[in-house]
Design a protein around this nucleic acid. Structure first.
Lengths: 261, 261
DNA sequence: CCTCCCGATTATGTCGACACTCAGAAAATT
DNA sequence: AATTTTCTGAGTGTCGACATAATCGGGAGG
């Protein structure tokens, strides 16, 4: 695994943005870099993304930087209040639930369409990914499992052969990617997740669209429940509340350290 | 009805864009105007949207114009090939089907959540809209029915109390708004659509989430079938196929006529 | 007569600059 | 000293300008 997590996030965002449009590479480049840092946690929620500093960093004018931020805002990773500095979006606990529920519904549709249209070759590839995920889980390779999961969902969405659905799903994936890593920490849930994935491929092979849809929905909703337990317990007390309560205390020093002296 | 269709489209787009972010008014202003013209058919699919002409027209620099086009591209109304002029997006028959299927799935989720969370007051408002739609249909007020339908779906999405779902739905609505008007031309389908809407409100009042979801899905898929018949018959022979078959032949003259001598 | 190539024209992507606005520090008042 | 007011620095939104790339039209060649 020569690739760092940041580079992998970067690749994922690149695929999402490139799928939509072959926009000039500079803007996409900037958007990918910033987006990857957000997903990787290098830019924590709420941190400033003022365009002049970013422009200095990327050695460009502010125009492409602004456009990149606008794109990332449409993807839900950045907030741009009018006449105020852009900042990393901070999805509250409620919004996380919304994202997962919508994602469950769309993955259900994807499963239905995949069960109809998927070819044998595509399914074999999916099966291979699941095998890799099992292997990673067995050896305790948490990152390996995580990225296998990401890749599985990427390929799975493609199986629907529905570009519109893929785009909508991609947008939600980017929003949820920040949280998904935490849902793996529970080993019991991880085992069930693997079983779900394996059975999902089987269901697709049998063209059983209802079972496939039910499985993906169950998997996503299970992840959401796990997340709610973690966030409800940990973040509501440790991370979300302090931002609200202490206010400026954390805005000053704690965050601005994203490493370019 | 003092409002023209263009103004109504403009208002719809304005609500969609303003919901996402309170972006500077100038960009949103331009995006609303161009978007409304696209939805209204004043800018036919494929017509040029070069930023210099638009900038002249709105008496601004090209910067806000470009940003507006980027936003409209994210909403699926505009295509911006790299280094090439932006143009009005042209959804083929296949993509229309995709949009409607995704929309059906998401409206299903919206119905499920609305059946749980909707208040009596909200449902009364929905009922009133349906009554207005019935009235419009009875008097043959095609436009009145169309805008009642739009408003119904706007309010209905809000009933889910799920902002993420609303945003995803909004994006799909903008894409489908161009076609929906055509699905009304069939009077038989119109009657069934009204019945579906009425029963949907009843189902929501009974908190019957399954029936509500089934009804909205049936309604959307019915609209899709009607569209496919129309487009499959008319457009596949007259408009879509020539683009594929003749190639560059139509790129020169046939489309470029969007009226500014 | 049609096709291909080449120059003039136009549009794009990017840049640096400007007025206006916002946030925080300094100063003045109670 | 605490609170309000002023003031200064920095950032945003917008503009006009430039280099580069794409498009349109005419001329050479088949």
């Amino acid at each position: 695994m020569a690739l760092t997590n940041l580079e992998r996030f970067r690749a994922v965002i690149g695929r999402v943005l490139a799928k939509e449009d072959g926009r000039p590479s500079l803007v996409v480049e900037i958007a990918c870099t910033i987006g990857a840092e957000i997903l990787d946690g290098l830019q924590p929620p709420g941190s400033d993304l003022n365009s002049v500093e970013l422009a200095r960093r990327f050695r460009t004018s502010r125009t492409p930087t602004r456009e990149a931020l606008v794109i990332l805002e449409k993807e839900g990773l950045v907030e741009i209040p009018p006449r105020r500095r852009p900042r990393v979006a901070d999805h509250g606990l409620k919004e996380v639930g919304e994202i997962y529920r919508v994602r469950a519904a769309m993955l259900g549709l994807a499963a239905t369409e995949a069960a109809r249209h998927a070819t044998a070759g595509e399914l074999a590839e999916l099966r291979a990914i699941v095998t890799g995920m099992q292997e990673a889980a067995r050896t305790g390779d948490s990152d390996g499992y995580y990225w296998g999961n990401v890749r599985f969902h990427e390929r799975f969405a493609e199986l629907s052969h529905n570009r519109t659905l893929q785009r909508s799903l991609d947008s939600l994936v980017l929003r949820s990617l920040r949280f998904r890593r935490r849902t793996l920490s529970n080993p019991e849930r991880l085992q069930r997740s693997i079983a779900d994935h394996s059975r999902l491929v089987s269901a697709l092979e049998d063209h059983d669209s209802e079972l496939a849809a039910a499985l993906v929905k169950a998997n996503v909703m299970g992840a959401l429940r796990a997340l709610e337990v973690m966030l409800g317990g940990a973040e509501a007390a440790a991370s979300l509340q302090p931002i609200e309560i202490l206010g400026k205390t954390q805005g000053g020093d704690g965050i601005r350290t994203h490493g370019r002296g």
